[in-house]
Every structure is written in C-alpha cells, then in structure tokens.
C-alpha cells in the first residue's frame, strides 16, 4: 500500500515522504498522515514573528523613501514638470500661431478670390467692349464692301447698257447701209438715207418688243 507522510520536523520544516509502510485502515487508497513534535512549538516560539517589522528594515526603508521624496520634491520633479510645461507652452504657442496662420491664409484666399472676381469682371467688360468694337467694325466693313459692290454693279450695268446701245447703233447703221445698197441695186437709185434709217429703227424697235 502507498502512503505519503507529511511531517513537521524539529526545525519547523514540513517534510513529505512516500513509501510502502503499511498503515491502519487497509482500504487500498494512499493515506496522508501528519505528525508534529512538541519541539516544533518551542522552535516556533523562539523564532521571531514573520509579521513583526524589523527595526533595520524600517530605518533603511524609511530613510530611502525620505531621501527619494526630498530629492523629488526639491530637485527632480520641478525640473521634469518645468520641462513638460515648457513643451506644453511651445505646443500651445505653435497651435495658436498655426491657427493665426490658417486664419491669415483664409483671409488671403478670400482676398485672392475677391480680386479674381474683380479681374474676371473687368476681363468680361473688356471682352464685351472689344466684341462690340469688332462688331461695329465688321458691320462698317461689310457696309463699305456692299456699297462698293453696289457701285461696281451700277457701273457694270451702265457700261453694259452703253455697250448694248453702241452695238444696236452699229447694227442699225450696218442694216441701213446694207438695206440702202440693196435698194439701190434693185431700183437703180439710191434711197434717202434718213428714210432707210427710220425704217430700220422702226424694225429694230419692233423686234425688241
């Protein structure tokens, strides 16, 4: 049968041991037995309490804390805190200047956009004026060209009419001459030129109709 024995020794140690020592109550299960000696209580009484504070630890621990507190309070903490404040102020200042810069930039953008609107308006005015000028010049040029064309056409018509009249005159003279010569050949005497001319004119006038 297996047994595990936990024994407190004279020095106050807990001692566990495992073996085949038979013990009472033969149930087949391992048994745990604890034993203590009278001497254990005596040893425990001699040992200081584990809870009791030791004077030297109190002095060293307390002294270390007091030194830490004084050095922190007087020297180290103010330096670190001052540095933190300086950085916070710097960040705050940078933030404020960035805000001011942003406002200034926004004002500049607004001013630029205002100027841009003015320039665009001015450009539009100039373009409109130029367009009107160009339109007027174009109209004038077209009128001038049209007038020139009309004059040329009138001249051409006149020249054409003059040429027609000249051609008709030449034809009349030629017809009158031929007619007079034919009548002279037929009758033997030369007809009156003015009469021949009158007949030819009336014939031409009748043909023109």
């Amino acid at each position: 049968m297996h047994t595990v024995a936990v024994v407190m020794t004279r020095e106050g140690r807990l001692h566990a041991s495992e073996g085949d020592t038979p013990v009472s109550g033969d149930t087949g299960e391992p048994m745990v037995a604890m034993a203590s000696t009278e001497a254990t209580a005596e040893v425990a009484a001699k040992d200081p309490s584990p809870i009791a504070p030791e004077g030297k630890e109190l002095v060293w621990g307390g002294g270390a804390f007091i030194v830490l507190f004084v050095v922190m309070r007087v020297y180290l903490f103010p330096r670190v805190r001052k540095g933190m404040e300086a950085r916070y102020n710097k960040i705050r200042g940078s933030h404020e200047s960035a805000t001011a810069l942003r406002s200034s930039a926004r004002a500049d953008v607004a001013s630029y956009e205002g100027q841009l609107i003015g320039v665009r308006s001015e450009a539009k005015t100039i373009i409109d004026a130029a367009r009107q000028t160009l339109e007027a010049e174009r109209t004038a040029a077209v009128a001038k060209v049209n007038a020139a064309i009309a004059a040329d056409r009138t001249n051409a018509i006149a020249a054409n009419e003059a040429a027609r009249v000249a051609a008709v005159g030449d034809v009349r003279d030629a017809v009158a001459a031929v007619s007079a010569h034919a009548a002279e050949l037929a009758s033997g005497h030369r007809p009156d030129a003015s009469k021949v001319q009158g007949i030819v004119d009336s014939l031409i006038a009748g043909g023109a109709r």
């Binding site: 060293w60 030194v67 180290l76």
Partner: peptide
C-alpha cells in the same frame, strides 16, 4: 540586508529615472 538593498535600489532607481529624464531636451 536584502530588504534594505531593495529599498535603496527602489529609491535610487526612481531618482535615476527622473534624473535621466531631466537631462533630456524637454522641448
């Protein structure tokens, strides 16, 4: 003893941390 060493190291370690911190550029 060992407890005194640890207490002194704790105080020294805290001071060293802040001393090193205070020497760095705070900005």
């Amino acid at each position: 003893n060992k407890i005194s060493i640890i207490a002194c190291l704790a105080a020294f370690g805290s001071m060293l941390l802040f001393f090193l911190a205070s020497r760095k550029d705070p900005l």
